[in-house]
Computed example of a mutant assay.
Amino acid sequence: MHVKHLLLIAILALTAACSSKEVVDENLSEAELYQQAQADLDSKSYTSAVAKLKALESRYPFGRYAEQAQLELIYANYKNAEPEAAKSAAERFIRLHPQHANVDYAYYLKGLASFDQDRGLVARFLPLDMTKRDPGAARDSYNEFAQLTSRYPNSRYAPDAKQRMVYLRNLLAAYEVHVAHYYLKRQAYVAAANRGRYVVENFQESPAVGDGLAVMTEAYQHLGMDDLAATSLETLKLNYPDNPSLEDGQFVPRETDDDNRSWLARATLGLIENDDPLPPGQTRASQDVIRQYEDAQEDIPAELLPENQDEVREQEHEASANSDRSWFSYMTFGLFD
């Protein structure tokens, strides 16, 4: 199903790329341009609306519809899935009209453009974990909504902006926890502890605070800082007793303390590791594919397996054994095996 969706996206993108740029009639008056742009917005023809609004602004820069056209150009670019163009138009409107009665709308649309920047067509059809993606756009959106709520606290858009800020704050906190777990896995315990403390200090009241405390506890345990580990653990038990790192009140670390890696692996935080040599003809990718196949095979429900499953497995075992026979065994039909 995902493949069909991706093919549809590719076809739409190709169609849009191949379509010719719309030419706006030069004989249209200011009012006619504005009316046609409004009709395009109503019919969701955002590309055509953008072209007409740009023409209106360039041909009649001091007309009665100039400021409104600049404001609606932000919306048209946003709805046309052009976040950078929408933010650029919003910044321009804010710079040119800081005292405009609807400048709060420009701030709001600027935040929305960043908010949806990572949620394009692909993200709608694929199960992407937003907490593991680059938080740049999320951080920009949070800051832009913060400007709106601080400068215009009574704006009609402030309540929605505040709700989005809560979501973005939780997302940024979860991203920091993912980074901390990465450091734990790479046995960079000082960096992991610092990330966990950053979450606890800067994202209070977010769900990720408990995970930050768990990271701190584990990192301090690995570092031998028993007092700090005990303090973090007591705070975790007191405030987040249902955290996944606690089982029956006991802390369960995610990573072991055995560090039998080479000096190169430790120096590069595990980015360069000396793995055991692979068998001839195999690669890491092929091993991953085989492992995924075996895991998927084990997850097949029993009711979906064929009735002669035991015979199939026996035949597979015999085929595997035969594949290891020498040419002499084949020539003698296995009499001397």
Rank of each mutant, 00 (worst) to 15 (best):
I9L: 15
I11P: 00
A16S: 13
V23W: 09
D25G: 06
Q36I: 03
S45W: 03
Y46A: 05
K54M: 05
R59K: 12
A66S: 12
E67S: 12
A69T: 00
Q70W: 03
N80H: 11
N80L: 10
N80A: 13
E82N: 15
P83L: 00
E84H: 12
A85L: 12
A85N: 11
S88H: 06
A89M: 01
A90N: 03
R92V: 05
F93W: 01
R95C: 03
R95Y: 07
A113E: 02
D118N: 09
T131W: 00
G136T: 15
A137D: 11
R139G: 08
R139Q: 15
Q147N: 13
Q147R: 13
S150Q: 12
P153I: 12
P153N: 12
N154V: 04
R156D: 06
R156A: 13
Y167M: 13
L171D: 01
L172N: 03
A180C: 05
A180R: 00
H181W: 12
R186I: 01
V190S: 13
A191T: 08
R197G: 04
E205A: 10
E205H: 14
V209P: 02
G210N: 04
G212R: 02
L213R: 05
M216W: 01
A219D: 02
A219R: 00
D226V: 13
D226L: 10
Y240I: 08
S245N: 10
S245E: 06
E247K: 15
G249M: 08
Q250N: 14
V252C: 04
D259C: 09
L271Q: 14
P279N: 12
D288T: 13
D288A: 13
R291G: 04
I300G: 05
E303K: 12
E303W: 06
L304K: 10
L305K: 14
E307G: 12
N308G: 11
Q309A: 11
D310L: 02
E311T: 09
R313L: 14
E314R: 10
Q315T: 05
Q315D: 05
H317C: 03
S320K: 11
S320N: 05
R325T: 07
W327A: 08
F328R: 09
S329V: 12
T332K: 11
